Every structure is written in C-alpha cells, then in structure tokens.
Amino acid sequence: MIWLVFALLTGAAVMSVLWPLARRGEAADPATTDIAFFEEQIAEIDRETNEGRLSPQDRETARAEAARRLLRARAALGGDAKASRRNAVVAAAFAIVVVPALALFVYSRLGHSDLPDLPLQARLEAAPAHSDLASAVARIEAHLAEHPEDGRGYEVVAPFYLRNGRAADAIDAFAKALRLLGPTPHRHASLGEARVMAEKGRVSEEAQRDFEAALALDPKSAIARYYIGLAAAQNGERDKAIDIWSKLLADATPDAPWRERVAALLEQLRGAPAGEAGAKIAAMPQAAQQQAIRSMVERLRDRLEQNGDDVEGWLKLIRAYSVLDEAEKAKAALDGARKALANDMDGRARVDALARELGVGG
C-alpha cells in the first residue's frame, strides 16, 4: 500500500512540473538574466550621473547603449522557445508513467528508507547558487571573447568588475573601452579609479595621468578632482590638497553624495575640527600645530578604547593616522574598529569602505 501511495505522489509531482509545459509550451530562456543585468546597468548609469561621476552627454550615450541591449534581450526572451503542444503532452504522459516506475525500481535496489531526514537548519545554511547577474556577466565575457572590438561591451562589464573587487579586470576593460570608443572625462576617470583600487587606495602616477586627462576634457569632473586632491595629500602636499578639495566643495551641490566624505577628509587634513579649537590650532606655528594635532588624535584613540561604539570616531581616527602617514597606527585603528564594531554590520561596512579608499590594512 505504501508503494502505491509513493507512486501516486510521484505521478502528481511529475504532473505538476510538466503540466505548465503541456499547457503553455514555453521554455525558460537565459535572456532573463541578461535583462536583469542591463536593467541594473541602466540604474547604475543613473546613480553615477546623480553622484556627478558621469556627465549628461556620457549618460545619454551609455544609457542608450544599455537600453538597446536590454531591448534586444527582451526580444530574444521566449522568441524561439515555443515547443509543440502535442509533443509536450506525449512527453508528459510518458514521464508520468515511466518516471515513477523507474524511480521506484531504482530506489528499491539502492535506496535507504531508514536514513534520517535532512534537518531544516542544515538546509537553511546551504550555500546559495550563483547569482543571475554573474551569469549575465559570463555571457558578456563570452561575447567579448568572440567580438573583442565591442567597446560598449567592455564599458558595460567594467563597473561590475570594479564593484566586485576585480580591479585588474576592471583596468583592462576600462582601458579597452577607452581605446575602442575614444576619450571622455568619465572613461579616463573610471580607468584612474580602477588603478587606485588596484593599488589599495594609493593614487599611482599612472592613475594621476588618467585623472589629469579627465580634467583636460572636463575641468569640473568631480571624481578626477577628488583623486588629484587625494594624490596631493598622499604625497605630503597638504596645502595643494586643501586648495583642491576646498574648491571642490565650493562647487558641489548641497545634495552631492560625496560631499560629506570630502568635507571630513578636508577637516582632517587641516588638522582640527571647525570652530574655536580649530582656529586656535591654525594660529599656532607649524611644529606646534603638528604636536597639537597628534595630541588630539591620541585623545581620540584613548576615548575609543573606553567606548568603541562610536563609528564616526573610528572613521576620524583611521583618517587621521592615514593623513599623518602613520600606516601601522592606522592599521591598528582599523583592527580595533573591526573588533569593537563586531556586532554593528553597517558600522563595519563603513570602516571597511574607508580602509579600502585609503589603502589601510593591505
């Protein structure tokens, strides 16, 4: 009796899977993953435009290309995936009869009905499958392998590489897009940013040339001005960095998403918070300024050792040591922040993002 119940259940399961095939005759199409990718690409273009990283002209060009690819993927979806209804019905009937019989036969020979079920917790902890986005990127990579002259393809996939820590691949893709499609401020700045990520936050001479090329085409390029200022700060050119970032903030819109970051770096570079304390330090001789700044940084460190829940404090401490070119202390501050913020996922994410930006901790 139990085997009959199993056979009926198996038949019902097979029928529930095959019935939509018999009714509609539609097969899944891999173009759905491409659609999701290009929709995300369009959203990414809009975000970069809002952040001032992409000029309106470049936005229209990139968005038009992504939209074209999206329309082509949508047109391909299900276009040639229709199956014959009659063949589907025959296949369903065959599967309903043969599959349960074969399954019961094999299970009677090889199965172990006495084994315990897989616990729910174990299933919940199982590793998820690869994302559809990664699958879409793999398709684009296969396309580029066959059509290496497709500059738009490199421009589409390069930001994905950069967001996922594949800086070397991003450099290669941005460089090929620049070569095949021609120079624009956004392409030069994106290539420079990829080089900075590859150097763990350090602005190399090669990256600086990319940013200078972006500024030659668009003197108002926010991302290029930011990294040129960062290069000056890293090279010890304090006054130059302050001048660049001060002008960048003066030109920024009130809702610029990077405004707060630049303001914090500028504040740290000046060596003191705004207000009366900052004015007093600014009036000191250079040597006294440095001593006062280091004293403030050490007091901040001592306070964080007593109360490590202050995310902003950790961010200021890591920036301060980085600006003071004290790499070991910056690394120690990063380790301390990660330990103190172990239960604050958002705080840890902000600390890790700053560490990557400044090249702290390798």
Rank of each mutant, 00 (worst) to 15 (best):
L265M: 12
R299V: 10
Q290T: 12
K280R: 14
P273A: 05
N307A: 13
A263P: 01
A279E: 12
E260N: 11
P257F: 08
R303S: 13
V311S: 04
S295T: 14
W314P: 03
L266W: 02
Q290G: 14
D310H: 06
V262E: 00
E267M: 14
G271F: 03
E260G: 14
L317M: 10
A288P: 08
K316Y: 12
G278P: 01
R261F: 06
Q291V: 14
V323P: 02
K316L: 15
M284N: 08
P273L: 05
A288I: 12
G271P: 00
G275H: 05
S322L: 00
A288T: 13
Y321G: 01
D302A: 15
D302T: 14
M296S: 12
K280M: 13
Q306V: 13
E276M: 07
L265Y: 00
V323S: 01
E260W: 07
I293T: 11
Q290E: 14
R303M: 07
P285F: 09
W314M: 05
V311D: 01
E298F: 08
V323Y: 00
Q286C: 04
A263K: 03
A282W: 05
A282N: 10
A283S: 13
N307E: 14
I318H: 02
G308M: 03
G278F: 06
L315N: 00
W314G: 02
A279C: 07
A283Y: 09
S295N: 11
L269K: 08
L317F: 06
R294P: 02
S322V: 01
R261C: 03
A264C: 05
